[in-house]
Design a protein around this nucleic acid. Structure first.
Length: 465
RNA sequence: GGUGGGGUGGCAGAGUGGUUGAAUGUACCGGUCUUGAAAACCGGCAGGCCCGUCAGGGUCUCGAGGGUUCGAAUCCCUCCCCCACCGCCA
């Protein structure tokens, strides 16, 4: 969430942010509610101050009177009662005032809070303006030797490509029918070498992060309380996207949600903590199962491994001090990490600078990395798919938006309390990444060459089929 | 799931209606002493929000929420969590 003081001082920054992100949040309404709330709060606090002062002054006196009253009779008793009534009058008026203020604040707060939570992090100045994914700007592309983006798959490789759907069927790597039988649409079963390839890719990515990047591998909960979802910025906007475990409806405990990314567990870890300055930056990675309802995506990418309800992902996050330059440096390192991994896997890809309209509420900058998937896209004149890029990674800078919500802070060298900056990035998501992997490494006979870096994780197997 | 105990500041631990945001210890930071260190002594040491240019002031926070009261860490209600033992179990 954003800093309300900052909003009051520079409302236009946030109005523009909302506009550029193509969102709709009534900033003026929020400002009006905020002002009203503060005015009432001030009144209430004045009344309370008076109440406290009186309490200290006359409180003990009243206590003494009441004690005396217990043993008193007749004229003395009524005299004491009168004194007491007089003393009680003033606090009673103040109490009514405090309560009235409280009622009015309670009436305002739900809308105030709800609007506040919806205000997005304004995009960085250098993020190109745009309405949506179509306005994203390609930064660069890379392809392994022997692969030319300007040529068709057949022109590159000398044979027509099979789609990953055909390949997994051919080699028995994935069983969609039984997945659907058990769990419904967009479910699947990883099978045999398919499962081993899936695991190999994940293990390779975790080891890469731990051994070559010095990140701490973690195992974090994938079932979390609502606070974690709100704190990490996925709620309220993404509520429909998460599976909801209604424990409260059973009359026990609290509701839980399945996380759609390891980011939730990694960032929720230090919620409400004040981190020692020396502990920064935090560099964490995790491999976790991710659950997504894909609400609103009905009919989109219905076939294959592209859009599924459950998958596994290696995610990295960095929590660093509130420093723009440092945050940008980590962002660059994250992107470099992804490029190193994709290159080592022999996959072709491009980097996209996401435009303002394609950013979410919580990020100020995002780079998407799309891998080339030969089996994707339209069917060409030769009857083979033309191929297309498909998103496999994204790396975001969140400024202090997420740590503010999580209440994750540190004391800087001057002793000042600050919200940390956060970043997150997909290291690898599988089985989606198996799409380009299988399709790019397929041979004319349909066999698939396993990239060298994965072989140690596959018991030395160099080829599938 | 059953029974019992408990949630107070970084930690430990007082505190059962009235200057208690909270004693005391410890940790931590600064200082004195010392060749240096330790010890000892002195001082400092919670966050949020609001007002204020500053100095500073006000308010809230003792698991969470509600209630009683002129006044609640202290009394009442609801919920959450933790610990111990038993049962079950990957």
């Amino acid at each position: 969430m954003i800093d309300l003081k900052e909003l009051r001082d520079h409302p236009d920054r946030f109005r523009n942010g909302v506009r550029d992100k193509c969102m709709e949040v009534d900033i003026d309404r929020l400002l009006a509610l905020d002002e009203a709330r503060r005015a009432i709060l001030a009144r209430q606090e004045t009344a309370r101050a008076e109440q406290n002062r009186l309490g200290k002054e006359t409180g003990p006196k009243m206590g003494a009177l009441k004690t005396k009253l217990k043993g008193a009779i007749g004229e003395e008793k009524s005299q004491l009662e009168r004194e007491l009534a007089e003393l009680e009058q003033k606090p009673a008026v103040l109490k009514a005032e405090v309560q009235e203020c409280e009622a009015r604040i309670n009436a305002i707060e739900p809308e105030w809070r709800s609007l506040w939570m919806q205000v997005p992090q304004p995009p960085s100045d250098d993020v190109p303006k745009g309405k949506g994914a179509d306005d994203n700007v390609e930064i660069r592309r890379w392809s392994p030797t022997g692969w030319d983006f300007n040529k068709s798959f057949e022109a590159n490789r000398g044979f027509k490509p099979r789609t990953h759907l055909e390949l997994v069927k051919m080699h028995g790597l994935v069983d969609f029918e039984r997945g659907v039988k058990m769990s419904g649409t967009r479910h699947y079963v990883m099978w045999g070498l398919g499962m081993r390839l899936h695991q190999a890719v994940l293990r390779y990515a975790v080891d890469f992060m731990a051994d070559r990047r010095g990140f701490s591998p973690m195992g974090v909960p994938v079932i979390v309380k609502e606070e974690c979802m709100v704190g990490t910025g996925f709620f309220p906007a993404g509520r429909e996207q998460a599976y909801h475990i209604e424990e409260s409806a059973r009359g026990s405990g609290h509701d839980l949600f399945l996380t759609g990314t390891g980011e939730v567990g990694l960032m929720g870890l230090h919620a409400d903590e004040i981190l020692p300055l020396e502990s920064l930056p935090l560099k964490y990675c995790t491999v976790s199962t991710c659950f997504r309802r894909e609400a609103g995506a009905a009919g989109k990418d219905t076939a294959g491994l592209y859009r599924i309800h459950q998958f596994d992902k290696v995610e990295q996050v960095v929590v660093c001090r509130a420093d723009e330059a440092e945050s940008r440096a980590w962002h660059a390192q994250m992107i470099e990490t992804v490029e190193m991994i994709l290159q080592s896997l022999g996959l072709a890809y491009r980097l996209l600078q996401c435009c303002t309209g394609d950013l979410g509420v919580k990020n100020e900058d995002m780079i998407d990395i799309e891998s080339w998937m030969p089996g994707r896209g339209e069917i060409g004149a030769d009857g083979a798919p033309t191929g297309a890029f498909g998103e496999t990674h994204s790396a975001s800078r969140l400024n202090d938006f997420q740590c503010r919500r999580l209440n994750l802070r540190y004391k800087d060298e001057t002793g000042k309390m600050r919200f940390a900056y956060a970043l997150n990035n997909t290291v690898i998501a599988s089985p989606r990444v198996l799409i380009p992997l299988l399709e790019m490494h397929q041979q004319a006979d349909g066999s698939v060459v396993v990239p060298e870096v994965l072989r140690p994780y596959m018991g030395g197997i160099a080829r599938i089929g």
